[in-house]
Amino acid sequence: MILSESDICERIASDNLVITPYSEESQQPASYDLRSAEDYLLRKGECTLVASLERVELPADVAATLMCRSSFGRRGVLIGGGFVDPGFRGQLTLCLVNQGPEDVSLSVGERVVQIIMHEVKAGGREYGGRYQDSNGAVSCR
């Protein structure tokens, strides 16, 4: 089941999900728009690692899928590595590939990627990998 706006807000209010800093403008009916932590230039034909402004902490019963917002997709920007396991904590590194015909500027605070959260039935095992507690855009470890 995909978490709705009310599910997301209820979980945040009960400290069962963290998205900080939270923005009402970024809240969508069944997703949340992650914002860029810095200014970036997405050069055509290149992959750019972009840090999310938000720190996310998923509980053991929630996983997430990352999708580029359609306004960026229409310009040729795609996202790679779009899954977040239950229990992940930290800023997300967004692997953005610009396949469009021109460079794309990304401003700090600009909404760029949707995080769609899913309930995990019988969840219990949490992420404990090398990107736990990430700060900023993190290269391959």
Rank of each mutant, 00 (worst) to 15 (best):
Y22E: 02
S23H: 14
E24Q: 15
E24W: 03
E25M: 06
E25G: 00
S26V: 07
S26H: 03
S26C: 04
P29F: 00
P29Q: 05
P29G: 07
A30W: 06
S31A: 11
S31H: 09
Y32C: 01
D33V: 06
D33K: 04
R35F: 01
R35K: 03
R35H: 02
L41I: 09
L41N: 07
L42G: 02
R43K: 14
G45Q: 05
E46N: 01
T48Q: 04
T48D: 11
L49T: 10
L49N: 15
L49I: 13
V50W: 05
V50R: 15
A51C: 02
S52L: 00
S52A: 02
L53D: 11
L53G: 05
L53I: 02
R55H: 15
V56R: 12
E57H: 14
L58S: 00
P59E: 04
P59L: 08
A60V: 10
D61P: 14
D61V: 12
D61H: 05
V62M: 05
A63W: 14
A63Y: 12
A64H: 01
L66K: 03
M67C: 07
M67R: 07
R69I: 09
R69P: 13
R69K: 09
S70D: 12
S70M: 03
S71F: 00
F72S: 00
R74L: 08
R74W: 05
R75G: 03
R75K: 15
G76L: 02
V77T: 00
L78S: 04
G80M: 12
G80Y: 09
G82D: 13
G82K: 12
F83T: 12
F83V: 13
F83D: 08
V84S: 15
D85S: 15
D85T: 13
P86W: 01
G87V: 08
L92F: 00
L92I: 15
L94I: 14
L94A: 10
L96I: 01
V97T: 06
Q99S: 12
P101I: 04
E102Q: 11
D103W: 05
V104N: 14
S105L: 11
L106F: 00
S107Y: 11
S107R: 12
S107E: 08
S107M: 08
S107I: 09
V108S: 14
G109H: 07
G109T: 05
R111C: 09
R111H: 07
R111N: 15
R111I: 05
V112K: 04
V113A: 01
Q114N: 12
Q114A: 11
I115P: 05
I116Q: 08
H118D: 10
H118S: 05
H118I: 01
K121S: 11
A122W: 02
R125D: 06
E126N: 01
E126I: 11
Y127S: 07
Y127C: 10
